[in-house]
Design a protein around this nucleic acid. Sequence first.
DNA 1: GCAAAAGTGTTTCCTTTACACCCATGC
DNA 2: GCATGGGTGTAAAGGAAACACTTTTGC
Lengths: 230, 230
Amino acid sequence: MSDEQNIKLAVDAVVFGYMEGELYLLLIKRKYGYNKDSWALPGGFVENGETLEQAVKRELIEETGVKANYLEQLYTFGEVERDHRRRVVSVAYIGLVNPQLFELEADTDASEAQWFLIRELPSLAFDHDHIAQSGLKRLRAKLSYEPIGFELLNSKFPFSDLEQLYQGILGKHIDRRNFRKKLLSFGFIEETEEYATHSGSGRPGKLFEFNEQKYSELKANGIHFEIKLA
Amino acid sequence: MSDEQNIKLAVDAVVFGYMEGELYLLLIKRKYGYNKDSWALPGGFVENGETLEQAVKRELIEETGVKANYLEQLYTFGEVERDHRRRVVSVAYIGLVNPQLFELEADTDASEAQWFLIRELPSLAFDHDHIAQSGLKRLRAKLSYEPIGFELLNSKFPFSDLEQLYQGILGKHIDRRNFRKKLLSFGFIEETEEYATHSGSGRPGKLFEFNEQKYSELKANGIHFEIKLA
DNA sequence: GCAAAAGTGTTTCCTTTACACCCATGC
DNA sequence: GCATGGGTGTAAAGGAAACACTTTTGC
């Protein structure tokens, strides 16, 4: 029985980054084989001795040099013809990364790795357009009912960064006062004594930091968070 | 290269049924191989020419005779040691079924198929306990922010059935008046002119039906549904 | 001193909750 | 006629939304 008879299992990563008010997606250019030279999501086959999550992390590092500190399983794509060469089922993950923390380095299968503005994506190999869109949809949904997104920022950030992040990703205007009131009311965002170094004009804002532990505690008790999309 | 070198891909189904105020889980007794005679979730290997969803549907029918009218992907379980014999990664689905519509028939790999009260589950083969619990958690979460659950009832049902279903699954008391008001306010539950045939004592209630189309339209526009768990 | 962003409270509105009595039916 | 579940409205409380002026800084 040839290899052609078996279903191969792969993982793909939809990794988002955020810089200066804009959301980016991490893509690689494939070095070998079918779909060579087209842009695609980082990913690859799962090896026998590793879990799915280990596989994504490994592929991400190999292909881009990025180590995602937030990873969550998105969906498993199992259409029969998603890869024309052979049957491949792929488990997709969402990752969040602060791009400033990594220098992109294409290593193995990828000849290039690059951040693309989310609203200027090239067309992607296989069904990766579809996977990326699902990822984006999930990110938006999740952001609006769970305060993730701190992974996209520096560990200390002015409040306006958070605002902009939310507005950027959700594509909506958010009332500054209500947003700040709400997020601070949970208690997992803490004020530090530092101030932003003036990154332009205007009054420098205080820096805040995310208290992951407090967040986990609250979450365990059923946090109730929601940013309306109106 | 022996078969042992390849990862096998399976699907498993966490199928819920609802009868007389109680939530049930559909289990099979395995006929062959390792874990023979222990209870397990219906499921099996994905074949090369079928999608994941087709595989679940096929296995469900083969092993239990049940045709789920609601199926949603739950999660993909990829721990290395979840099956001690060889590497198996499993894509789990949640299904909802009105048990009264089917006679259980174990067919191929299963020697028996049976509905188990959710609070009296036997211990299951492999990591199926874990999968089942994830499924239950998801069902509860989903039920509380999206009005699924009509698949568990007859197509025409008295309002009290819905109430009981919600209370049964969420394990909480719900105010009858507020619940009815809220659900009817969406407009996808329609009053019929029929009345329940007295299934006991008391005044027979009007029968309602779920208008799936209206529901889909609303959902597309971003429905806002939530049943508080307090 | 002016342009740019940060910081801050109050009022209005709407949604959610709590709550109790009458009605139809079977026995 | 009584036991059982069905049907219904209103008031109070709480959370979300709308909204504008003052402060600090760089230039």
